[in-house]
């Protein structure tokens, strides 16, 4: 279990903000921090990983104190078992894939983990390539593998997939779930993609102005459980088109675009790019063997 009690005055372009955060994350859970840019999500994760020092508070992980302002405990980043993956990969450009991973090895650490990770991420054939020759998805797999070299207990994913195209994102989402399970991690994700959040996380914490304002299971959090409708998906609006007296709304759900008829009154509330819930009763769809 991870327990965070953090106080920190943060300066940003919008002025000063007092981060005042209480957060408990169960061991082995996959959780998402959700909220606007500048709400304090990344600062929270930087404090957990030891890259940013809280003004006061406490961090305990599995009963061990990582930070306690009152008893002056403050473990160094390398003493904390945290793997950190950034949106921009942060790979060393002058090192090849294997060297990027090896750089993360601790003194005297058995390097068999490198082979295991290269194999698991299907990077063996690319191991001698420099980052600049890799695709975005491949770079992110390298970054993720590097974050796992020291066998962390906690994996932090700060908008890891937001620079990737949809197809690659869906593939890497699956991969993130596999990694989370295989290495028995407690994973903390920052993401704005509701479909991604629902697919990956056990629970969601919404952070606003440095405080947790709402939390719940992913489906409850986004209201997906708020109807009895069983045939339901979340997606993003691609197109809103008037036809006759109704509107036809095109929604991207996973890799598929579906179309839903909407009354003008409802359509007036919708915008392209909106995240939406699409639902129907379990009694209505037909099902046919392919």
């Amino acid at each position: 279990m991870i327990q965070l009690n953090l106080h920190k005055t943060l300066s940003s372009t919008g002025g000063k903000m007092a981060l005042d955060l209480d957060l408990t994350i169960e061991k082995g859970h996959f959780v998402t921090l959700f909220g606007e840019s500048g709400a304090g999500k990344t600062s929270t994760l930087r404090m957990l990983s030891g890259l940013l020092k809280p003004d006061s508070g406490m961090i305990t992980v599995g009963g061990t104190t990582w930070f306690d302002s009152r008893s002056n405990i403050d473990l160094k980043p390398q003493q904390r078992k945290v793997g950190y993956v950034f949106q921009d990969y942060a790979l060393f450009p002058n090192m090849n894939v294997r060297q990027n991973l090896e750089y993360a090895l601790q003194k005297n650490q058995d390097n068999s983990i490198i082979r295991e990770l290269l194999e698991f991420a299907e990077l063996e054939e690319l191991q001698h390539r420099k980052p600049e020759t890799l695709s975005g998805g491949q770079k992110q797999r390298v970054a993720l593998s590097r974050a796992l070299v020291q066998r962390p207990e906690i994996l932090i994913l700060d908008e890891p997939l937001s620079a990737l195209d949809l197809k690659m994102r869906i593939k890497l989402q699956e991969y993130l779930l596999q990694v989370h399970k295989k290495y028995k991690l407690t994973t903390i994700l920052v993401s704005h993609d509701i479909g991604e959040i629902v697919k990956l996380s056990d629970s969601v914490f919404e952070i606003q102005n440095g405080r947790v304002i709402k939390n719940g299971t992913a489906a409850d959090f986004f209201g997906l459980n708020k109807t009895s409708a069983k045939f339901r998906f979340s997606g993003e609006i691609l197109k809103i088109q008037r036809e006759d007296v109704i509107y036809i709304i095109s929604v991207l759900i996973g890799n598929d675009i579906i179309r839903v008829v909407s009354d003008p009154k409802e359509a007036a509330l919708l915008r392209i790019g909106d995240q939406v819930l699409v639902a129907s009763k379990a009694f209505n769809p037909i099902i046919q063997k392919l």
Binding site: D244, V245, I246, D263, P264, K265
Partner: peptide, 22 residues
């Protein structure tokens, strides 16, 4: 009543409030 080429939209006043029927 809003009459379209193929479909029409009715606003109905009922005991349970306004109901739209297409």
């Amino acid at each position: 009543v809003e009459m379209g080429l193929l479909l029409s939209r009715l606003i109905l006043e009922t005991n349970i409030g306004e109901v739209i029927a297409i």
